[in-house]
């Protein structure tokens, strides 16, 4: 309490900055503000540090497991954390073993993700732009129909989609174009977030351009698109990330032709099919190799993601 005298001064300075001068009552003085603030901050730091540990732990553990050799130690599950000897055997197996199709799966997924990123972005932005900026007969109908269709669970139609693709020859050896087709075909229904973004661009921009004689196509390409960079990047990011995690439908479409698996299907079977004994550490290594580039990409483009989800959440 020896520094009690100084507190009023500090408080008054702060209040002056806010443009208000207030009398400070003795009771308030007792609750030493900076002390209180400090305690709160220490509490917050503690919570955040704890959370950071909990949030990072599984990933760190995963990385640890991936360095436990399946050859010299144990490729299955163990009840200790740190490998007894650190080794790259799992990674070496993934890349060099002649039985390993990991690189193939990785490439498959990359191809799907790249095509998906381009095509899906074009489709989503087209739909969003049309529904946001253009007014035409049937606009409301389309939006309501999408709302209703969206309430049906996706897995319901899996078997139908499989046979539709099969009719087009896009299963098994055609699995990769098949998956791209399916991912893109219905992607127009995910226009909400982009539409929300377009809605925020002032209409006057279009109107003045139209008066200057620009067609709607030119308005779209020359006026709106340059402004839409954040949402374009957001859409590309989402479309690129999604195919990496599909272990259900991708498995259906590849239908037992291992060379056409995506990386999720391939890795998933290592932990879920009894034939793969001792593949757990290799699964971890594969998982790390999938997670690292995607996480890096995501973190690099985090800003756009935040703009996307925030906009989407607010505008519904």
């Amino acid at each position: 309490m020896s520094n009690n005298k100084q507190i009023p001064e500090v408080d008054i300075v702060v209040d002056e900055k806010a443009g208000v001068i207030r009398e400070i009552k003795p009771e308030q003085k007792l609750r030493s503000k900076s002390g209180h603030e400090k305690r709160v901050n220490v509490g917050i730091y503690t919570i955040l540090t704890l959370m950071a540990i909990i949030w990072l732990a599984p990933f760190v553990f995963l990385v640890f497991q991936s360095f436990r050799s399946y050859l010299t130690e144990n490729g299955g599950m163990v009840n200790y954390l740190l490998p007894k000897t650190w080794s790259l055997d799992n990674y070496i197996w993934l890349f060099t073993d002649e039985k390993s199709l990991f690189l193939r799966w990785y490439l498959n997924t990359l191809i799907i993700a790249l095509f998906n990123a381009v095509l899906q972005t074009v489709i989503v932005l087209s739909v969003a732009y049309a529904l946001s900026r253009l007014r035409f007969k049937g606009r409301k109908l389309i939006m309501n129909a999408v709302l209703v269709l969206g309430l049906f669970p996706g897995f319901l139609t899996m078997i139908t989609l499989y046979f539709l693709l099969k009719q087009l020859g896009l299963t098994q050896n055609g699995a990769i174009p098949g998956l791209i087709l399916i991912y893109c075909a219905s992607s127009g229904m995910g226009y909400y977030i982009s539409k929300g973004f377009f809605d925020t661009i002032p209409k006057s921009l279009d109107e003045s351009a139209r008066i200057d004689g620009a067609t709607r196509f030119q308005v779209f390409m020359k006026i709106i698109m340059p402004l839409a960079k954040p949402i374009v990047i957001y859409t590309i990011l989402m479309a690129f990330m999604a195919p990496w995690g599909d272990f259900v439908f991708a498995s259906y479409v590849a239908f037992g032709t291992t060379t056409n698996y995506n990386v999720a299907v391939g890795l998933y079977q290592w932990v879920n099919v009894a034939d793969y004994q001792g593949f757990f550490t290799r699964f971890c290594a594969g998982g790390v190799l999938v997670a690292v580039p995607i996480t890096a990409l995501f973190l690099a483009l985090q800003k756009y993601y935040v703009e996307g989800v925030t906009g989407g959440a607010v505008k519904g």
Binding site: I159, Y162, F163, K166, T171, Q172, F255, G256, T257, T258, Q269, V273, A274, D275
Partner: peptide
């Protein structure tokens, strides 16, 4: 010759005999 787990193989054969092994 493709590696397809035994339980999985049966499910797949039932789903689509024509496409199966």
């Amino acid at each position: 010759v493709e590696p397809v787990g035994e339980g999985d193989a049966a499910s797949k054969m039932i789903t689509d005999v024509e496409g199966g092994a």
